[in-house]
Design a protein around this nucleic acid. Structure first.
Length: 639
RNA sequence: GCUGGAGUAGCUCAGUGGUAGAGCACCUCCUUGGUAAGGAGGAGGUCGCGGGUUCAAUCCCCGCCUCCAGCUCCA
């Protein structure tokens, strides 16, 4: 075992080391500073812990606290640390899974007595004690039989059956003092690295997510290499709470939810402004891109849903009712209705692509436990469209849809867009060659719309009736939301017997594309509320300007100015209460009004207004007309 | 749906086996004040809904409803 290994470092240099050299030794060899900063190594893309003897050559780098992968290692180690503390405080507990996640870690426990929120502090304290002990993470490799015996001895009953599901022959354990866990690793050198931790919640979970299986409790937390990052993360969580659309929606009187209609949002006048502005934005694009807008009924007969296939695939999520002894359903999707429109008369190839858009309200009976404000509802409105075209028109159509998506998202302030191409699943319907052609068309459309090299492939995740593109946006807090979707459909036109007459005089079946840009109006407004924290750009803002009188002597003038603004299509209100202007400024700021138009004796005398922005900038005295011009310009630019 | 938690004034929340309180918001009055909180007073609650225990229930028990957090990002 004394053969030489060749490690190719990130700078391109080759380092010769003896087989069995540890990551720590390599780091020390490169420099003492690196040795101190080293968290783990990465050999051929696989992260290995610091005291692991290297046994093969390849590309190699040392991970330090600055690497994202190192953070993952830290958090996985933090999950172990959590388990150590829980086993100390709740002896006899069994362990489930305890992975690192995108922004922290969790561990599932089956404890003899329930873990309550109030225990978290104690558990965290115990964790910090173990941090001080600097327990190492010692790797032990066993074969499967030995592993099962070992798990049995420690009393980790849940993990025993899991051993046989692991593809590798070698099962590894990590020992930290008296604690041990079956784990793939890797880990940080010792627990002293995990100083900056915070436990966030305890909640229910099931062993392997099976709701009929063993109930467990999940403790979630997060960990960082330094105090600053942890603090920033906790502040982000606080920020997110302040921006929660349910809270902002109530504060700004945008919408409400009631026990009388769980999952069915009520839109108030100010929330409806947001809705209408978004619809207007989308309509502008529809007009420019040759779409016709349609409306289809909310309630349609059962037979339609059997024809479309929704009855078979979607029945449990649909609302049914009997009318005149026939069964009807509330539409869960708009496409079948649109297909009836297409089928209502014959079509020529010269009409294709035929584009029909619909702001279509749909109802789906989502499980009660998943409802969440506007983000997960039972009634929502899709900015839907269905395009019927020939197969060779697919790419150009999809290209236009992606262009529209980019344009609409940019207008609402989303520039960071991610896309995924979901391809043929196992239970796919239709001709595999057609699938392949349309997947190529989707990929090509992505490349030609500035997504080249930026979209990711999701093999096998397409719908059974065709491949699709998912569009995700990243909001101001860095969270990603799936909104838009483009789906090719080989199935539904045939189910409805839709056809067009080709140039050859023969009947052909069109391909159908389903697409939504915003996805759900409800959900998109919810996302926008959180993205802006309620501080909307002027064109979207429910109240664009508030006219504030300084004393009650200007009440009439303030009311008139507000009326003038409204006449000039500015959404304005007047505040003529007997409070001091400072108080009114404060209220208007909390209401997130974009402009405060202050009118006192001076302004009333001169027929002017004194304008202040939401951020507190003084634009100074000007005529109402000048303010209107200024505001209209800002609205036009959707700035 | 499942597990755990919660439901008291418009909002944020105290509170008690003997039919309820604060702050903010709201209304009135005083003040007429120039860019993030002037002062005083008043009004406002079937204590989520339905049962039960009790002389008495907002409080204890049971059921229901709604909301909140979570429910396979693998050892």
């Amino acid at each position: 075992m004394s053969s030489q290994l060749e490690l190719r470092l990130p700078d391109g240099s080759i380092r010769q080391v003896a087989s069995g050299t540890t990551v720590r030794q390599v780091a020390a060899d490169i420099g003492p500073g690196l040795a101190k900063a080293a968290v783990a190594g990465e050999l051929e893309g696989t992260v290995v812990e610091i005291d692991r003897p290297l046994e093969s050559s390849g590309s190699f780098r040392i991970l330090t606290a600055r690497d994202g992968d190192a953070l993952h290692v830290l958090r996985h180690s933090a999950a172990h640390l959590l388990a150590m503390a829980v086993l100390d405080l709740f002896p006899g507990s069994d362990l489930g899974f305890g992975p690192a996640t995108e922004d922290g870690f969790y561990y599932d426990f089956k404890t003899p007595t329930p873990i309550l929120e109030e225990h978290l502090e104690k558990i965290e304290k115990r964790m910090k004690e173990i941090v001080k002990e600097g327990r190492s993470y010692a790797r032990v490799a066993l074969d499967k039989e030995q592993a099962k015996v070992r798990l049995g001895e420690i009393g980790y009953e849940l993990k025993i059956p899991h051993v046989d599901e692991i593809p590798e022959d070698e099962i590894t354990f990590y020992d930290s003092g008296s604690f041990t866990d079956m784990c793939e690793g890797p880990h940080v050198p010792d627990t002293s690295w995990i100083e900056h931790i915070k436990l966030l919640s305890v909640s229910g979970a099931y062993w392997r997510g099976d709701a009929s299986g063993i109930p467990m409790q999940r403790i979630r937390g997060t960990a960082f290499f330094n105090k600053k990052d942890l603090k920033a993360h906790l502040e982000r969580i606080e920020q997110a709470k302040l921006r929660d659309h349910r809270r902002v929606g109530r504060e700004m009187d945008l919408f409400s939810l009631h026990a009388e209609g769980p999952g069915f949002p009520f839109w108030h006048p100010k929330g409806t402004v947001l809705w209408n502005e978004l619809e207007g934005l989308v309509r502008e694009e529809l007009r420019a891109r040759g779409y016709g807008e349609v409306r289809t009924p909310a309630v349609l007969s059962d037979e339609l849903w059997r024809t479309s296939g929704h009855y078979d695939h979607f029945r449990d999520d649909m609302y049914f009712m009997d009318i005149d002894e026939r069964q009807f359903a509330v539409k869960p999707m708009n496409c079948p209705g649109c297909c009836l429109i297409y089928g209502s008369r014959p079509h020529s190839y010269k009409e294709l692509p035929l584009r029909m858009a619909e702001f279509g309200g749909v109802h789906r009976n989502e499980m009660s436990g998943v409802l969440h404000g506007l983000l997960r509802v039972r009634a929502f409105t899709q900015d839907d469209a269905h395009v019927y075209c020939a197969e060779d028109q697919l790419e150009a159509e999809i290209s236009d849809m992606l262009d529209m998506t980019r344009k609409v998202y940019a207008a609402v302030g989303f520039d960071d867009i991610k896309t995924r191409l979901a391809t043929r699943p196992e239970d796919a319907m239709g001709d595999p060659a057609a699938w392949e052609r349309s997947e190529k068309a989707l990929a090509s459309a992505l490349d030609k719309n500035g997504f080249e090299g930026l979209w990711t492939l999701a093999p096998g995740e397409g719908a059974f009736y065709g491949p699709k593109i998912e569009v995700h946006v990243t909001d101001a807090l860095g969270r990603s939301w799936q909104c838009g979707t483009v789906q090719v459909d080989f199935s539904m036109p045939a189910r409805f017997g839709l056809e067009y007459t080709g140039s050859d005089g023969m009947k052909h079946t069109p391909v159908m594309i389903h697409r939504a840009i915003l996805g759900s109006m409800e959900r998109f407004v919810g996302i926008l509320i959180e993205h802006y924290g309620g501080k909307f750009p002027l064109w979207l803002a429910p109240v664009q300007a508030k006219v504030l009188s300084i004393t009650e002597k200007q009440a009439d003038y303030a009311t008139k100015v507000a009326a003038d603004l409204v006449a000039a299509r500015i959404r304005a209100e007047a505040d003529v209460r007997g409070d001091k202007v400072g108080s009114k400024i404060r209220d208007a700021t909390l209401e997130r009004v974009n402009y405060m138009v202050v009118v006192g004796g001076r302004e009333a005398e001169a027929g002017q207004v004194d304008v202040r922005s939401r951020a507190g900038d003084r634009l100074g005295a000007m005529s109402s007309e000048d303010f209107v011009a200024h505001a209209r310009e800002e609205i036009r630019n959707r700035a």
